[in-house]
Write a protein that binds this DNA or RNA. Sequence first.
DNA 1: GGATTGACGTGTC
DNA 2: AGACACGCCAATC
Length: 108
Amino acid sequence: MEQSFYDQVFELVRLIPKGRVTSYGAIAKSLGAGGSARMVGYAMSNASLAHPPIPAHRVVNSSGLLTGKFHFETPDLMQELLEKEGVMVKGDKIQNFKKHFWDPLQEL
DNA sequence: GGATTGACGTGTC
DNA sequence: AGACACGCCAATC
């Protein structure tokens, strides 16, 4: 089975350190997909189906906005998990986003 | 195999 | 600052 783009996304998302967040675009870029940030988000739709749990709550859009929170079991789950890891979230938006930002290209 | 679809990104108005 | 428009690109129908 070839590892589709989705699988690559899943693996990379699992590498996100606790208390850190990254953006879809950054993930796509690190995978060499360039501007296929949408694919990353689309892949996350299947994240719930993935066998090993995926910390999808650590993935937000470039604005640090919790765009995909509605895809969780509950819309509040995402924010709770983030705050639990030390990330402040207000108005569905991550505070100090740059501070918590984790760039795969830079860290790997 | 063309059309549709997106948990996006950046730029304009 | 908020709303709208267009581009990108792989998976799915």
